[in-house]
Design a protein around this nucleic acid. Structure first.
Lengths: 231, 231
DNA sequence: CGGAGGATTGAAGGCTATCAAAGTCCGTGG
DNA sequence: CCACGGACTTTGATAGCCTTCAATCCTCCG
């Protein structure tokens, strides 16, 4: 059952706004694909001419130097668009962080379809502009923030995305969530080493700012403190 | 004389591809504006609802922390598009680095016009995608490169943009160009301090890799060495 | 000529990386 | 059920890069 009609991101992805007929056309071009955690979808410098919508899961976009240093330059969540339409081949790898499901299109097919559907291109434009904004604010973090500011900013962003901001009556409960990143991946995202990430986490735990129920779980205990640390 | 017909970036900016009638309409919405070096065009967090095309000059896009640290998140050259169309207010300041001339539009007017002209939106989309690519590769630099790698990468990029790659017969001549950046601005671009930038410059000069005819001029003597240093 | 802002240079210190080892978690297989 | 292996994480010690603080030097312009 790989129909757009039943797609869970149908109304949030760039496909939103297409009418039934257009959806059928788009549907016939694309295909669903499962990607296991750790598996690449697009390889850096590969001419892998595909674009995709994320249906489920989390993926990382990375660039690497020849000597193996890696920087995560973007993270794709459900309903996000992946890949580089229109001519240029992007120099970023895409790898699944969790088991993921995506809707893949041959780039040529997608390019042609998009050019014929301004509404789709507009959605893509808005999305790309928003992504550029996010990326730019991340540059601030990479270039000018200290390790503890980076970690605090990161945790707040994760909490906002994943936190069960339980609509509890009065008191804001401690937010708790599962990280889709390993320590190494957090380091690659923040421009740090794994050791520094680990040390910052334990320090925040010792100071009572966060809890670490397990390796992949974080509990925000003192959000105000995190905000003060975020710079 | 503020007509699109005589505009020097007419065929490179996003306006390219519009027919005469459309150009007249666009022309009536926008106005030319001169911005002196150091003068802001858009203020961070200001709701300054304008977008613009750069006609002449160089401008920087920056974000700052409360305590005054600054990061340059983008640089706009002639024919580049500035500002944040479609709803969101960008959190970046735009300041002229050199005397500049821009073609300014009220954002609302531009938004409406763009939505009625898919060809314009497509140009804007391609431009935004390219800018996102550039920004992401800059993240790699900010997060993972050392000071000397940052400087070398920066100089190569400047040389490619400004260098008089004189189509000389056999030998590639030493490239020479004027920087539109002060040392502090180079630091803000690379996520370094002004002192580190200065030290790296003098080191490269001492090693015979570059020459520094004046504060604002750079001569690339050993391009191969720079490429090796760039990581 | 003199001032002011920018740039360079120097010395010292701190933050983060590097190197190294121990600890933890989890799946596998006995 | 428990032991084992491997990957990931934490912790420790040390080193080094870059920042910070400070002073001097240029260079441009009034």
């Amino acid at each position: 059952m790989s129909s757009c009609e039943t797609c869970v991101v149908r109304n949030r992805a760039i496909c939103a706004g297409l009418d039934d007929k257009e959806l059928v056309a788009l549907n016939s071009m694309g295909r669903r694909r499962n990607v296991s955690a750790g598996e690449p979808l697009i390889w850096e410098a590969d001419d892998s001419l595909v674009v995709a919508n994320v249906i489920e899961g989390v993926l990382k976009l990375t660039t690497s130097t020849e000597d193996g240093r890696e920087q995560i330059v973007g993270v794709a969540y459900p309903s996000d668009f992946i890949g580089r339409p229109f001519g240029q081949t992007s120099r970023a790898s895409v790898v699944a962080l969790t088991d993921a499901r995506v809707c893949v299109f041959a780039r040529n097919d997608f390019d042609r379809f998009a050019r014929e559907h301004p509404e789709l291109e507009h959605k893509l434009l808005e999305r790309t502009l928003a992504e550029l904004d996010r990326t730019r604010s991340w540059m601030m973090l990479l270039g000018r923030k200290t390790a503890s500011e980076k970690i605090a900013t990161f945790l707040l962003e994760m909490a906002d995305r994943f936190g069960d901001q339980g609509c509890a009556p009065v008191l804001m409960p401690a937010q708790r969530f599962a990280l889709p990143f390993s320590r190494q991946q957090v380091a690659d995202l923040l421009g740090l080493t794994i050791e520094t990430v680990s040390r910052q986490f334990t320090r925040l735990k010792q100071d009572g700012v966060i809890g670490l129920p397990s390796r992949r779980e974080v509990e925000v205990i003192d959000r105000r403190a995190l905000q003060a640390l975020a710079g």
